[in-house]
Design a protein around this nucleic acid. Structure first.
Lengths: 165, 165, 165, 165
DNA sequence: TTTT
DNA sequence: TTTT
């Protein structure tokens, strides 16, 4: 059994950093990876690949990457499933990054700032970032959403069960 | 931009072989890849990764692999989305295999037989396998289903637009 | 910076297990990886790739793999150089395996036996396997040899400096 | 059998472009890939990995990459051997790049210039770049050199036998 | 100086 | 909705 993924692409948004109840950092982000070939209409499409990274590299990701950053990911493919809000099972395939490489030229290397800034954390997650969202059944570390990677500032349920090691 | 996936695992079912209107072969299968680590309960889990393969290797897959076969896949990650039957967008991440390796010992190498046999193709797809399924909006090469990998013998809509090259 | 190698092939010989002075296990082996294409003469050639693995997986390799075993390697490419016996610098490129997968069917999974047996270790390396080979300048974990992977039963100098972590 | 390598690193020199007798382009270059970890002395070392690329991508490499360029390589590991000038067999492990990615920011994307310029090609290889180097037995596409990747402007023997497909 |  |  082998499972290896290597990607280079650009973040579609600022990464999202959270913590499990036991304090482990988790960052999620989506990498847009342009295809090397064009489709029948001559357009170059992209794949949008959801990535998760844990612990120290999660904090590095949150500190050094932002929307548009060029990054490399070395990791493994993971599948999960959870019950969607309509009661249907939702299947998710994502990349668990074991290492993330910052491929921007030096000068873009300073900690990111702006609305979504990791240091200044504010709106949406004030107080306990894990204040339970009572009226939803959860499985896995994301709210039961159409797209588990979109969480629009709402509290999210991250379990220590998802720690990869 | 780089995008590379390498997997070794076992098929969860016999592969599924289809043809586009223009005659290109497509096989889909799911690889169960056991994790190298155990979870909090000490169980070894697996990831179930959907794979697609086109043209000649698709026919090889259909001829030589079956449920339980050990196989290696070298390919790339692809994302697609389509409108689910409830009108919601469904996001799919799968592996487009560029090469598939048969890792079973020699003697298991004879063409597979049985209900799902590639040669004897029968129920469900008799006649034109691409007889349009009129009352469904389609996008991508699968019927608008909750899970594009489950198609329970129904006609399926595979477009030549999905050919990777 | 990224560096990832994934291989599946067969061992050309029994693996070679040694220990550093501080007691860390190192196994070396060569993987024959058949090419998927044939040359101008219609022959299918192979690449012969030297691999190194450290610590616990080194002992697993020594215990479970032997000449002819099918194995998967996930690791990184490493380059080293040392002074050859003629005083010329020798450049070496090899794979440092981070994980090694045993791809043989179950029944071939018992610990290997025979002349080169890991347990019964005998001729050549009796006594201290690290008895220094005084009259040779060494660099890297192998004797200054034309080919660091050939050591024909002679004592070898493995330094803890080569530990990858 | 599987064989996959993915690298991101920087060119140690301008790439070297040549042509086989039948007119196929071949570029060679070395990628310095910094390690993610430091050695016992706390220094971050690098691996220096020789890469070969054929045909159209070879010309792109020659046109767009130069010493110091950040590049990604997706390919396979290949081994060759040839008789060195002292009559001893020399073993070479290198990466055959199937695709090469230019990871520099936009503005560095103009064709490279300078002494080694692909367009203005001059000293060393004037006339027939494959004027045979009579007094050397050759095997593989490089002159029998200590380091097959160093060729200091001398004619080189590249055979069409080395075409990967 | 190579594996099935 | 899973493989050995």
């Amino acid at each position: 059994m082998m499972n290896r993924v290597v990607l280079v692409g650009r973040l579609t948004k600022d990464p999202d950093l959270r913590y499990t109840p036991s304090g482990a950092a988790v960052a999620t982000f989506t990498l847009a990876v342009n295809r090397t070939f064009t489709n029948q209409q001559g357009e170059r499409e992209a794949d949008f690949i959801n990535c998760v990274v844990w612990r120290k590299p999660a904090e590095n990701v949150a500190n050094f990457l932002k929307k548009g950053s060029l990054a490399g990911v070395d990791g493994r493919l993971q599948t999960r499933n959870y019950e969607g809000q309509d009661g249907k099972r939702v299947y998710v395939t994502e990349v668990v990054a074991e290492s993330v490489q910052f491929l921007e030229p030096r000068n873009s290397g300073q900690p990111r700032t702006g609305n979504n800034d990791f240091y200044g954390g504010s709106q949406g997650n004030q107080g306990n970032p894990f204040s339970q969202n009572q009226n939803q059944r959860n499985q896995g570390y994301t709210r039961v959403d159409e797209d588990p990677f979109s969480n629009d500032g709402q509290p999210i349920d991250i379990s220590d069960d998802d720690l990869p090691f």
